[in-house]
Design a protein around this nucleic acid. Structure first.
Lengths: 337, 337
DNA sequence: AGAGTTTATGTAATGCATTACATTCAGTAA
DNA sequence: TTACTGAATGTAATGCATTACATAAACTCT
């Protein structure tokens, strides 16, 4: 592999000039710039990034930490993230923590050694100490998306979870549903707490009673939706919900399977709303009514925010994006009775 | 950030000794090793990898190139890959080429500059020139998984596609189906050609005629399954297939939606087989009969193979893993005429 | 005891790009 | 013409870990 020296030799100048021609083109003559350019082409040079990174103390690599690559919810966010990153000359290192604390720490450890310049957190399921510890010392470039930590004022991109939940409930209420349950995500996630709050406040606003048994916790996955669905559908008739709002599409789809197994018709007997609008939600039976998040835009915003932080721009701390209720076939007028 | 010098100072030895204590512990005394270890703990040292990489001309980073992160088929492969990589001290850089040639090239360019040590290709949708060009010069560490290139003898991990397809057809035939169609993936992929070959040869073996209109090309996605499904279901009754074998679960699910829309019952009127056994296939309606690939194991094998290549071990060129037909509810006895 | 090994450690060169500082030269003002 | 400014380029130090080579010390064998 040719080095900058070979280029300097071929261009008849010093390595410093070559370096400048590349990094600060305005600092060299037009003539030299051209000579350097053709020399680069001639010897087939491309800079050794390890050396550059060593010198500049940066890596142009952004770590994106997520709980589970397998979850299709994240894929579009990642696509958005990556697109912005590539445009700006950054690389994205995807870190799947698999709900495993050790992994997350390993990724955080990349920062002080300049193997990564910043972190985007798509999960709150990491030890808070990792974040606070870092934040205490020097301000590390850290941006959260989707999730957030309550007490920490980190730059964050997110949706208005209470509002999104409230809208879903409002819609169900408008269809005449009075017994509305919810299958939440893991309740250690602030966003799930928010959605439950939105659920509760809207239920109150609609003057609907909430049976404590109507709030059940899942883990966003198919199976938990199926299992919790079975529980809800097994409630005695007077307590059995006629509509269920799920914190993820996967759980909603699991729930619909539980309904089929229990011969409960969706949407005639049971209305179901999901969350996320994953590709699948259009292809399940019935097609799923769901709360859509601008996933691509969430990814783009998060990356832009992080790059702003890296460039020490003044950044707004919270960015809230809009959700949209997509009405499909899994919701209908509440059954009479 | 403390450097190796600080450690040397704290341990009362030279930087060379510290370096050796870390890289070749057997070359230093027990006593020194302990002194170094406690010095490292004391100053909170962790090596600057940019410097190490520069010196060693390696990056301990493996690029994994795939056509589309959003496709859940890859997620489990990636999980397997990553697990092996992490265990062996390597990092995984995921490269989504999004069917975009330029991106792939950018990732290949990481190799000569020591930003990546090797590449695992999960897609054949890249310009072949990238591969051959590299292969010509120096043997670059490149392993393929799932996909492969015909004429190139690259180390590859894959399944027996003709056999898997033949088994699916054999099963449909055993259910009495005589008019069996197939929705393929993009036909520039050798694996799709293989599956079609398996389909054709098994049809012949079962003495079943193949209507040329029964082989239609999709792109692995939901929508193409839906659209091609509509076409197949619109065939005149005597040419209309009673069973369809799809090259992906997504297409099979799209197809089932097309069937619903056309009031064709699955499996009573139409049997459907998918490919991949994605998580969703258990939750769709009806549950999907599908060909399962050992995705986790494919990922693990591919990474192990690549690491073997990096370590210059003699490696077997082709590794073929087994598939399994998972029978669920989307297939049934062929309808009586 | 003397010569030859072996083992442990230190010294200094190395990998490559960047950049502070030094130098050169052309151009401007007095 | 002299002194000075600014632009363009060169020289060399720098970032940090690794490792070839050198040295020192301990040990073996005759």
């Amino acid at each position: 592999m040719p080095t900058i020296k070979d280029v300097a030799l071929a261009a008849g100048c010093s390595t410093a000039t070559v370096s400048r021609a590349l990094a600060n083109p305005e600092k060299v003559t037009d003539a030299t710039r051209k000579r350097v350019a053709s020399a680069i082409a001639k010897v087939g040079y491309s800079p050794n990034l390890a050396a550059r990174n060593l010198r500049r103390s940066e890596s142009r690599t952004i770590v994106v930490l997520l709980p589970d690559i397998a979850n299709p919810f994240f894929s579009e966010i990642i696509a958005g993230l990556e697109d912005v990153a590539h445009r700006e000359g950054y690389r994205v290192l995807l870190g799947d923590c698999e709900h495993d604390t050790g992994r997350a720490k390993a990724y955080f450890d990349l920062l002080p050694t300049n193997q990564a310049d910043g972190i985007i957190l798509l999960t709150a399921e990491i030890p808070l100490s990792l974040v606070t510890q870092q934040a205490r010392g020097s301000q590390i470039p850290l941006v959260m998306a989707c999730e957030y930590f309550d007490h920490l004022a980190l730059p964050t991109v997110r949706i208005d979870n209470p509002l999104a939940a409230a809208r879903a409930i409002e819609y169900l209420s408008s269809l005449g549903h009075r017994r509305i349950a919810t299958i939440t995500g893991p309740m250690q996630n602030p966003i799930c707490i928010d959605r439950v709050k939105g659920y509760q406040s809207e239920m109150a606003r609609q003057q609907l009673a909430v049976n404590p048994g109507w709030i059940v916790e899942g883990d966003f996955g198919f199976l938990s939706g199926y299992q919790q669905g079975q529980l809800l559908l097994a409630l005695p008739p007077e307590a059995r919900p006629s509509a269920i709002f799920c914190h993820s599409d996967e759980m909603a789809i699991g729930l619909m399977k539980a309904a089929r197994d229990a011969s409960v018709r969706v949407p005639e007997d049971l209305s179901v709303i999901g969350f996320d609008n994953i590709g699948f939600s259009e292809y399940c039976q019935p097609e799923l009514t769901t709360v859509s998040q601008p996933r691509d835009e969430i990814g783009r915003c998060a990356m832009r925010l992080l790059l702003d932080v890296l460039r020490k721009k003044q950044v707004p701390h919270q960015q809230v994006l809009n959700t949209q209720l997509i009405v499909r076939a899994s919701t209908a007028q509440a059954p009479k009775l």
